[in-house]
Design a protein around this nucleic acid. Structure first.
Lengths: 253, 253
DNA sequence: ACCTGAACACCGTTCAAGT
DNA sequence: ACCTGAACACCGTTCAAGT
């Protein structure tokens, strides 16, 4: 979600690198962020530290601070790298089609780096790298669809919230420390559910077990919720269509 | 979201407290979790540590481990306490009305403890305290509404994802370290937007600034997104109504 | 300009020891 | 049963010093 211009504007306060290639490979912000993402992908988020990252780069921990202001600023850049470039709305497409591809692309991006899922939409700073091209495209296609004023803001916020909402939940990690134990506990608990007290739960247990939020023992990285995601996206689009219809009606009267 | 039974089942492995009142007030899991939530409310999540919590309780850091397995397990309990009891679906209500009260109550719960927002839906463990009464109620009202099989699972997952999606974004913290700087940077960037390159953004700037995700400099704790939330909830319900209509149609043919 | 190196003020967690 | 106390293996970040 980072535009090229926004990235360039984020040049670290004290770093004034030459534009031409330096003879020694050395460090760079790009190398550091890429290594950080690789480390998080491999070891997980809670195993990540600046010191282990420094080891991976065969450099002193403090060297990183030449390129990066602090840990949280760095994680924001890692998120931006992981999400990559999200598709911009084409001018000629139907907004419903664009939303389908947007949702799909966003989910694929997080699926490729599930360990950063907790960071997505975590802090406003994570959105610091504002991709204006993406935003203009999204707002433009919504605007042309007929969303105006408060309903434009509402539709936009609905889409952003929905985008991060499902995917962060789907790829939320089950703690590796006790994965087996966790799985066993959850399965035992689900198996013991009293069909008299909880009839609907009991009747739909095979459908819900490991496929419904809160009743899972695997992350979406291992057990993706494909069908539910399709339904979710369809519901978002239908919901926005209803909003559009009712706001058009309101504007008419 | 924690049932009384589930809480009692979570008794720490080594703790076998007497049922009767002990003469010295001492510690307890409840006291620890409540103090942790208070600390997070006051100081923020990143200022929170077991050691500062111990100081607040005037106890050695290691004393906490008698009642709590580890930090992450404890944070899961803090989330459960913060969210409190989410309303259970009544048997006689329309599912749309219930969803409206559910969404509203959930948002109010997080609004009361915005600093825990990043933890909500963060890890599957945070959902470890499964409130079966709540789940049965939600699944029951959806089931009676006509959602069956895959569309029941899809509707349920849509609701959970929507519940956490908007609210975690809305109350995501802007870093206190540089709140003023951040605000200034964002405002400057929005002010500089080129109306030729970004016409829709520029035209709707007053509506979007600090009210659209990614374009805010304040958290929802300070600048709530009331209108957008209403639209969001309405869109979810309309979307589910469409899903219901189309799945009923599919079952008919 | 870019990195080393030492140092500071912390962490979460373990284990043995007290009462 | 419940808490103290010491200890371990880490953290993120600063600052001065080297080149």
């Amino acid at each position: 979600m980072t535009s090229k211009a926004a990235t360039r504007a984020q040049t670290p306060t004290r770093a004034h690198r030459r534009k031409a290639a330096s003879p020694s490979p050395g460090l760079s912000k790009e190398v550091i962020i890429a290594a950080a993402l690789a480390q998080i992908d491999e070891e997980g988020l809670e195993a990540f530290s600046l010191r282990t990252l420094a080891k991976r780069l065969t450099v002193f921990p403090t060297a990183i601070y030449w390129y990066v202001a602090n840990r949280s600023r760095m994680l924001a850049d890692v998120v931006a790298l992981a999400l990559g470039r999200v598709p911009t709305a084409p001018k000629d497409a139907a907004w419903q089609d664009y939303l389908r591809t947007l949702f799909k692309a966003y989910r694929e991006a997080v699926r490729a780096h599930p360990n950063v899922a907790p960071l997505v939409g975590y802090q406003l700073v994570a959105n610091a790298s504002v991709d204006l091209v993406f935003l203009e495209g999204l707002l433009g296609i919504l605007s042309r669809a007929g969303f105006v004023g408060e309903s434009l803001v509402g539709a936009y916020n609905t889409i952003i919230a929905a985008l991060v909402g499902f995917v962060t939940q789907e790829f939320a990690r089950v703690p590796t420390e006790s994965a087996a134990q966790w799985r066993q506990d959850m399965q035992a608990r689900l198996g013991q559910i009293d069909p008299i007290q909880f009839p609907v739960l009991a009747a739909n247990m095979e459908l819900l077990a490991n496929r419904a939020f809160i009743l899972r023992w695997e992350s979406g990285a291992d057990a993706p919720l494909d069908r539910s995601f399709e339904i979710f996206v369809a519901a978002q689009i239908s919901g926005l269509e209803s909003l559009l219809a009712s706001s058009a009606q309101a504007a008419e009267s």
